[in-house]
Nucleic acid binder design. Structure first.
Lengths: 175, 175
DNA sequence: TATTGTTATACTCTATAACTATA
DNA sequence: TATAGTTATAGAGTATAACAATA
């Protein structure tokens, strides 16, 4: 299993206690590659927890992409399908079907745009808004509970690191 | 859309430039809830990039869960199906089917354990090891490229924040 | 009886290709 | 001809429930 020998991380993507970390490295600033390996290790782990939390509120649960669509529409009412697909990062057909499901569930209104009849106009219904709010609150609360194990300096590091990741991974940049 | 009014983040989970961030908040240490909102915002974004990268090497691509299974087996050869499911965070049936695919593709060997014939013993094949190494390297390189936009202090924050998240979101803790 | 896995079934997610309607 | 969406099709990811084999 030939790894990049310049890296101090020998087994990324395994979240277990066995995976070595950078923390013993004396606080040195890591390379881009080391950060990348850490990302591959940690991000799927967090993603799974977020997904599990959104799923486990029976009857009215949301998948992560569904949640993201509702959230986007909450401050971009009237967005087109393409807008939503672009911002959430799905293809148009994938988004079309995802929105189908939300419309059937009464969470989203879909209408033809009068000005350009090719376009579709999407907006949250009242139910959609309420569900979004409750899902957001419940998920945030559960994650906050897990995060309560962090020290203030860990949280401060998160407050720097996460916005930095957002800048770098925003869809327009990645594509 | 009633949000927790204690939060300074009004629209999490939308990765766009429109979403406010904590950075203007004068460097104050964020609350657990603010960190949670940031996580919900940023993590799906990064996840999508990781997934897209692993997918876009045609013919021999890997999904993220597949990748994680191979990585786990690379340092836990002989693990049982339950071991892998536990560490990757899938149910046993889901893992059974996932492993089916890896066995069919010749990436994993599956054998009945002699000592306890209910158990299954999993290990990477040579091809599986090679594919893991190349997927890891390619994905890491692409992510590193994206991360090259970060400042040293951003990377230092990542080196603190990501291992902290790993501690908190490791499967055994989450469940 | 308890444990380990597999099969059956049913969603959602996601992509590509082909098509329709509008501009 | 170009753009916005939908439909068709297909495969992976994921869960629950029911089952089989072994201990």
């Amino acid at each position: 299993m030939q790894r990049l020998d310049k890296s101090t991380i020998s087994h990324p993507v395994c979240s277990a206690e066995d995976a070595p970390s950078l923390e013993g490295a004396g606080g040195a600033v890591p390379t881009d590659e080391e950060c990348a390996a850490l990302l591959m290790d940690v991000v799927p782990l967090v993603m799974r927890a977020v997904r599990a939390e959104m799923r486990c509120r029976r009857a009215e649960d949301l998948s992560v992409p569904q949640f993201r669509v509702l959230a986007f529409l909450s401050y971009r009412a009237g967005a087109s399908l393409s807008d939503v697909a672009e911002h959430v990062g799905l293809t148009l057909p994938a988004m079309s079907r995802l929105v189908d499901g939300l419309v059937v569930r009464g969470l989203v209104d879909r209408a033809t745009c009068a000005a350009d009849r090719r376009r579709v106009t999407l907006a949250l219904t009242e139910r959609g808004g309420a569900l979004l709010a409750s899902a957001r609150q419940a998920t945030e609360a559960r994650l906050a509970e897990l995060l309560s194990g962090l020290s203030p300096s860990d949280r401060a590091a998160l407050a720097v690191a996460l916005p930095a990741l957002r800048r770098v991974f925003t869809v327009e940049h990645v594509r």
